[in-house]
Computed example of a mutant assay.
Amino acid sequence: MDSAQSAPDEADRVYEMAAELFGLMATPLRLKIISALCRCEKTVGELVSELGSSQPNVSQHLAHLYRAGILARRREGVQIFYRVQNERAVALCRAVCTQIAIEIEDPAALAPEQRLLAPRH
């Protein structure tokens, strides 16, 4: 295979993997879970209480994040504790969410070309 053919294949793979990560993070509850676990590990029950969602719903999203390698878990008796495992994915989430929060709080703070969000009319 020549280098001209492999470069588009590699670029396609990068875009596919990025889209997969963005798809995984495209659920508000998953972003909330990641945020809740940034400082310390928590049990499913603690996350349910903190996030105000049902236990089955939180567990389903935790399972997706665990299978994707974003979170790790450990069992202690009957409790399952979750923690962040992939700091890079968390840093990406934090960067995007922080940028959006800035844009919402003070829309005039950034020039239009610096914004992630289109202006709302």
Rank of each mutant, 00 (worst) to 15 (best):
A91T: 05
C97E: 11
H64C: 08
E76N: 12
A89L: 07
C97Y: 01
A91S: 10
A101L: 08
N57D: 09
V84K: 00
A72W: 09
C93W: 04
Q79E: 15
A72T: 11
L71N: 02
A89K: 00
V58G: 01
Q85I: 03
L65E: 01
L92F: 12
A91W: 02
H64L: 14
I102G: 04
T98G: 08
G77P: 13
R75C: 05
L92S: 04
R75L: 04
E76H: 11
E76L: 11
F81R: 11
R74G: 09
A101H: 06
A91D: 07
L65T: 02
G69W: 07
Q60D: 06
A95T: 12
I102M: 10
L71W: 03
V84A: 03
V90F: 05
E76I: 09
Y66M: 06
A89W: 01
T98M: 08
R73H: 13
E87T: 11
E76C: 09
Q60P: 00
Q85E: 13
R73E: 13
G77Y: 07
R94S: 07
R74H: 13
Y82I: 04
I102F: 00
H64E: 11
L92H: 02
R94D: 06
E87N: 04
A101G: 06
L71A: 04
V96G: 02
A72N: 08
A89G: 14
V96H: 01
R94V: 08
R73P: 06
R74N: 11
G69K: 02
V96M: 09
T98E: 11
R67C: 06
Q79D: 15
A72H: 08
V58T: 03
C93E: 02
R75Y: 06
A63N: 14
A101W: 01
A101P: 00
L92N: 00
A101F: 00
A95S: 12
L62K: 03
S59K: 14
